[in-house]
């Protein structure tokens, strides 16, 4: 059986700037594939080409066994798209939206109505089906959007940054919904800026930079290549950072030290044993720690490893780190929420 998505040497230019510069991608049927990259790396351009919204300048693109240029209509009948911005009619109610999209998929009036009710029920939106979409919360809107992408149970589903702009609760809801789809044999292509999201949802991940894939593999393979998880330790006294780093019980290469924030960060292989080892070593040496956290590498760190250059300028970096810290906090809440939201879906 052929792959669900085949992208060969696809190029797309906007004026001087190459949005896609020889992109290659293969996604097996029934798998979830993550396309990971910073803003402007070409993720959305790739999704727009795959969903027939945009024509590539060169290259070959197949979705569900059909050529996106020559068999665009066939492709459209087999895909679902969850774009970066909610693709809904904000003036209409949730049920009206789903019925309209069902009719446009040529289900006929009665089946469109039945399908709308099924999907509202499945995504926990039955009570709010009559409410105008513009009065929905971010998470509800995203769930309705996802429901609209699933009207015909598509063979291939495209999710373009499905959780960008959502709060942790909304993110957990979307993650739980996506997980519930995977069992049904749907192929999913997911773009994201968050390694954690790709890690949670995707079987395989391709890292995209400047319009081409610079690395791919399973989440574990990628993390192994980028130094895996990290431990962040904040000390009470920045003067003792050097002493603390010297104490590290495991290979201390690739340790970063930030004196202003009294923080050092080191890669770890075994999360739990690393945590206990560090705590014990610091205690034994009488070095007071204010905070210790285990976390996934940030996208910026993955990038630094793969490209030797940062995704951001130095000024933006602090903000990114802060966001990453919030990420970790958010994920803990999200994981709990996901368990609860799982019942909804």
């Amino acid at each position: 059986m052929t792959d669900a998505i085949v992208v060969e040497d696809v190029r797309k230019r906007y004026g001087e700037k190459a949005a896609l510069d020889g992109l290659n991608l293969r996604v097996g049927r029934g798998t979830v594939h993550g396309l990971l990259g910073p803003n402007g790396s070409g993720k959305t351009t790739a999704v727009r080409i795959l969903t027939t919204l945009l024509r590539p300048d060169a290259g070959r693109v197949q979705v569900a066994g059909c050529d996106v240029l020559r068999q665009a209509a066939r492709v459209r009948g087999r895909i679902g798209l969850l774009g970066q911005h909610a693709a809904l009619d904000e003036e209409l109610g949730g049920r009206q939206n789903l019925e309209m999209f069902g009719r446009l998929h040529h289900l006929g009036a009665r089946r469109a109505r039945v399908r709308a009710d099924e999907l509202l029920d499945r995504f926990g939106l039955t009570d709010t089906g009559g409410k105008q979409v513009k009065r929905y919360s971010g998470g509800m809107r995203r769930r309705l959007d996802l429901a609209a992408s699933l009207i015909t149970e598509p063979e291939v589903l495209f999710l373009d940054e499905p959780t960008t702009g959502l709060d942790p609760r909304g993110r957990a809801e979307v993650w739980a919904s996506v997980r519930s789809l995977v069992g049904g044999g749907t192929t999913v292509l997911l773009t994201t800026q968050y390694l954690e999201e790709a890690d949670q949802l995707a079987d395989r991940i391709s890292v995209v930079d400047r319009g081409r894939v610079i690395a791919d593999g399973t989440a574990d393979e990628l993390k192994a290549r980028t130094g895996g998880d990290r431990i962040d330790v904040v000390l009470r006294d920045s003067g003792r950072l050097g002493a603390a780093v010297a104490l590290l019980p495991f290979a201390a290469e690739n340790v970063s030290v930030d004196t202003d924030r009294r923080l050092f960060s080191a890669p770890v292989t075994n999360r739990m044993s690393a945590l206990t080892q560090v705590v014990r070593a610091l205690e034994a040496a009488g070095i007071e720690a204010e905070d210790i956290a285990l976390r996934r590498p940030t996208l910026d760190e993955v990038f630094l490893h793969l490209t030797g250059r940062s995704t951001e300028t130095a000024a933006q970096k602090a903000a990114a780190q802060e966001a990453a810290a919030q990420e970790t906090a958010a994920q803990q809440t999200a994981a709990q929420d996901a368990a609860r939201a799982g019942e909804v879906v």
Binding site: L53, L81, G83, A87, L104
Partner: peptide, 10 residues
């Protein structure tokens, strides 16, 4: 965004 959904439908 709704125009994108229309255009990605058959």
């Amino acid at each position: 965004g709704v125009i994108d959904r229309f255009r990605s439908m058959p």
